[in-house]
Simulated scan of single mutants.
Amino acid sequence: MINELQKAQDLMNDGQYMPAVTILQNINGLSPKAENYRLLFMANCWYKLGEYQWATDISDNLLQKDEHNELASQMKYLSCCELKDFDNALEEIVRFLSFNEADIYKVTLEELLTDIKNGFINEQAIVSKIKELALKNNCLK
Rank of each mutant, 00 (worst) to 15 (best):
L109Q: 09
D85N: 15
N88D: 11
E82Y: 13
L78K: 07
D85A: 15
C81R: 15
V94G: 02
S98N: 13
L71E: 08
N100H: 10
I104H: 03
F99Q: 07
I104A: 09
E92G: 02
L71H: 10
V94E: 14
S98W: 05
H68Y: 13
D87C: 05
E101I: 03
A72H: 05
N100A: 12
E111W: 02
Y77M: 11
E92T: 14
S98F: 07
V94P: 03
H68T: 15
L90E: 09
S79C: 08
R95V: 05
I93E: 04
E70L: 04
F99C: 12
E101P: 04
N88R: 14
C80E: 14
C81K: 14
M75V: 05
E110T: 07
A89T: 08
F96P: 01
I93G: 04
A102F: 00
V107N: 03
N88C: 07
I104K: 07
I104P: 03
E110N: 08
T108H: 00
C81D: 06
D87H: 11
L71D: 12
L71W: 08
K84L: 14
D87R: 09
K76F: 13
Q74I: 13
Y105P: 00
L78R: 09
Q74N: 11
D87V: 14
Y105L: 02
L78S: 08
N100W: 05
L109H: 07
S73Y: 02
E111L: 09
L71Y: 13
L109D: 03
S98T: 14
K106S: 03
D87Y: 13
K76S: 12
S79Q: 06
L78I: 09
V107W: 02
I93W: 00
L109R: 02
T108Y: 01
N100T: 09
Y77N: 05
L78G: 01
Y105T: 01
D103S: 09
N69K: 10
E111G: 03
A89P: 07
K76R: 15
L83H: 14
E111R: 05
V107R: 10
E110F: 04
M75C: 13
L71G: 06
C80N: 15
S79M: 05
C80W: 07
L109C: 04
E92C: 12
K106C: 02
L97C: 10
I104C: 10
E91I: 03
L97R: 06
K106H: 02
D85Y: 09
C80V: 03
V107I: 11
Y77H: 11
L97N: 08
F86T: 14
S73R: 00
Y77A: 11
I93S: 02
K76P: 04
E70F: 08
Y105M: 06
L90S: 06
S98V: 12
E111A: 04
Y77C: 03
D103T: 10
A72P: 06
V107A: 06
A102W: 00
V107P: 00
M75Q: 14
Y105I: 00
